[in-house]
Amino acid sequence: MSQTDIYTLAGAALFVIGLYGLITRPHLIHKILALNIMSGGVFLVFVGIARRVMSPDPDPLPHAMVLTGIVVTVSSTAYALALAKRIYSETGMAALDAPDVIEEPEASSG
């Protein structure tokens, strides 16, 4: 098993673990963290890929992309956290409750 494969498999594992958390954990902070774990997984895959190029020096482009990705993830995480905080202050809980559209449906006219 090459180094690349280890990175890739670890990345995939993180991705799946994150997805699992995202699905099952109701708390918003957990969900945001789960997403971060998934992102981490993706970055690992990227880093692994950088090594796959048949040259002694790793390909710099994936690293550049990972950096960009990290920036994007950090900012969106920050925004998500702010949103979660705001939701907590508005509703007193940090979870996605059932959206109000799911009230008891009844036959409507038309």
């Binding site: 997805l19 995202l22 699905i23 059932a98 559209v101 799911i102 449906p105 036959a107």
Partner: peptide, 27 residues
């Protein structure tokens, strides 16, 4: 009859909208 069916589809939809089901479906 029609209303029952429609209403039932509404219930199913609320299931689909729930986060866990939806993301499981994505998975």
């Amino acid at each position: 009859v029609a209303a029952t069916l429609l209403a039932r589809s509404g219930v199913w939809e609320s299931g689909l909208l729930a986060w866990a089901t939806a993301t499981s479906a994505i998975g």
